[in-house]
Amino acid sequence: MCSYIVEKAALTGSAKGRGWMKIDTAHVYYDHPFHAPLDHALGIDFINAANGGRERVAIEISADSARELVRAILSALESGEQEHAAAAAAQTACAAEASVG
C-alpha cells in the first residue's frame, strides 16, 4: 500500500553513490519500491539532511533480505568490536611492558 510511514535514524558517517558524501540521516520505510521487482520492499535512503538532503544513496530490498542485513550488521559489530577490544588490550599490555622494561 502507499504509505508515508518513515523511521528516521541519526547517523555519523559517509556513503558512496556517484561519489563519497557525508551522511547524517537514514530514512527507513517499507512500501512499494521504485526499482526492485517486489510488491513491497524495505527502503533506506542515506542522506545529508544538514546539507538539504537532496542527494541520496538508496537501497530497496525484500523483507527477508532486510532481516538478514540487520543480523549481519549486528554480527559484524559484535565480532568487530570484540576483535578491536582484544587488539586494544594487547596494545595496552604491550605498552605497559615496554614502560616497565
Binding site: 508515508y4 518513515v6 530514512h27 512500501d31 521504485f34 527502503g43 537532496r54 541520496r56 538508496a58
Partner: peptide
C-alpha cells in the same frame, strides 16, 4: 519537492508526508 529523477523526488516527498 524540487527537481530530480522521479524516484529521488519521491524519496524527498515521503518523509515530508507527500
Amino acid at each position: 519537492f524540487g527537481p530530480g529523477e522521479p524516484d529521488d523526488v519521491a524519496a524527498r516527498a515521503r518523509p515530508a508526508g507527500g
